[in-house]
C-alpha cells in the first residue's frame, strides 16, 4: 500500500498554485544539483521542460554551497545531505517552485536511505523563505507508480493530463538514453570506484578523485556497466537480502568486478557517518579478504593531504603488484 502524502505546499489551492504563479510569465522550476540529481537529471529536467517550465538548476557544488549547507542543515546529517541543503539555498530565490525529490523506492522490496524519505521535511524546516515545493514521494518500481508522481506534479502546476503524459514519456526516454558511468580504457592499472553515486560524481566533495586517479595513471570503472541481474545474483549469496538498494548494488558490483578480474583494486568512497556504508564495507571486506581495498572517508574538511597520501600509496601498491604479477605467472 502506498501512502499518498499530499504534502504539496503551504497554501495549496484546488487548481494548484500554478495558475496563480503563471501570471508573471513562464514558471521557473528549481532543481537542486545534489544527491541523486547526478543519476536522474535527464528525467527531472526533461519532464519540467516539456511541461513548458523554465528549469533553474543550481551550480556544481562549490565552497559557497557547502558552507550554506553546513549552516542550514541539522548537524548529524551526512555531508551529501548537507550539500543538498546548500544547493537548495543557492536557488531558492531564483525559482517559483522547488523540486525536492522524495525518492522512496527504485526496486520492489528495497529502499533508499531514510534521509531521502524525510528530505523535504528536513529542508523545509531548516531553510526559511522557501518557495512552494514539489515533494511528492517517488516510487520508481514501475512506470505506473512513477507516473503517479508525474500526475501529481503536473496537477500542481495546473497542466493538462495530456501534457503531463507526453512530458512523462519524453522524460523516461531521456533517462533511458542517458549513459552514465566511467569505464576507462588504456590504463595499466585500473580500480573500481564504488560508493553512493553522489559521492562518486560530485568532484567537489570527493576532491577531484577521478581526475587525481587518472593523473596517477589509474583507470576507473564504475558500477553502471554491470548488469542488474549479475548484481542481484551476487547479492543473493548474502545471508539476508540487503534492505537498501545502493547496498545491494555496491556489494554486487564489488564482488563481481573483483572475481572477474576487471580491475586491480577497489576504492570505496564513503561519507563519514553513513550507516549503510558502514555495513556494506565490512561485507565486501569479508568476501574479498585478499583483494586490494581502499576506503576513503569524505567529510567537510577540505584538506587534501590525507586523501592524496592514501590514493598515491594505493596506486603505488597496485602498480608494483601488477608489475610483479605480470613478470611471474604464479602467485607468491
Amino acid at each position: 500500500m502506498i501512502f499518498f502524502i499530499v504534502q504539496f505546499s503551504r497554501n495549496p489551492t484546488a487548481n494548484g498554485v500554478g495558475v496563480d504563479l503563471l501570471k508573471g510569465g513562464i514558471m521557473k522550476i528549481g532543481i537542486p544539483k545534489g544527491l541523486l540529481y547526478c543519476k536522474y537529471h535527464p528525467f527531472l529536467t526533461t519532464f519540467f521542460t516539456k511541461l513548458g517550465c523554465d528549469v533553474v538548476i543550481s551550480e556544481d557544488t562549490n565552497k559557497n554551497i557547502l558552507d550554506a549547507g553546513v549552516k542550514y542543515c541539522v548537524d548529524e546529517a551526512c555531508m551529501p545531505v548537507k550539500i543538498f541543503h546548500g544547493h537548495v539555498a543557492s536557488i531558492k530565490d531564483r525559482c517559483d517552485i522547488l523540486v525536492i525529490p522524495r525518492i522512496m523506492q527504485l526496486w520492489k522490496n528495497e529502499y533508499i536511505c531514510p534521509k531521502f524519505c524525510g528530505l523535504p521535511e528536513m529542508v523545509i524546516n531548516s531553510i526559511d523563505n522557501l518557495p512552494p515545493t514539489i515533494s511528492e514521494p517517488i516510487y520508481a518500481t514501475s512506470q505506473k507508480k512513477l507516473y503517479n508522481w508525474a500526475k501529481a506534479a503536473g496537477k500542481y502546476l495546473g497542466k493538462s493530463n495530456n501534457k503531463v503524459r507526453l512530458a512523462f514519456h519524453s522524460a523516461l526516454n531521456a533517462q533511458r538514453d542517458y549513459e552514465e558511468g566511467i569505464f576507462d580504457k588504456g590504463y595499466e592499472v585500473n580500480v573500481a570506484l564504488i560508493g553512493h553515486p553522489y559521492n562518486i560524481y560530485d568532484s567537489f566533495s570527493n576532491m577531484n578523485l577521478v581526475k587525481k586517479l587518472n593523473k596517477l595513471g589509474v583507470g576507473i570503472v564504475t558500477g553502471e556497466f554491470t548488469h542488474e541481474d549479475t548484481l542481484r545474483d551476487v547479492a543473493k549469496k548474502l545471508y539476508k537480502k540487503p534492505f537498501w538498494t545502493f547496498t545491494r548494488e555496491n556489494y554486487g558490483f564489488a564482488i563481481n568486478v573483483a572475481k572477474e578480474k576487471i580491475v586491480d583494486g577497489i576504492i570505496y568512497v564513503s561519507s563519514f557517518n553513513c550507516g549503510p556504508d558502514s555495513i556494506i564495507i565490512e561485507l565486501i571486506k569479508n568476501s574479498l579478504p585478499h583483494f586490494p581495498f581502499l576506503i576513503l572517508k569524505i567529510d567537510e574538511h577540505t584538506g587534501e593531504a590525507g586523501i592524496d597520501t592514501r590514493i598515491e600509496a594505493f596506486a603505488d601498491m597496485l602498480e608494483r603488484r601488477t608489475r610483479i604479477e605480470s613478470n611471474f605467472s604464479t602467485h607468491g
Binding site: P292, K297, D299, G306, R310, A313, F314, D316, M317, G332
Partner: peptide, 14 residues
Amino acid sequence: INNGIVVDFAMNTV
C-alpha cells in the same frame, strides 16, 4: 609486505 612488495595497507580514518 609479501616477497618485498607492499600488498596491503591501511591508515587510521579521520
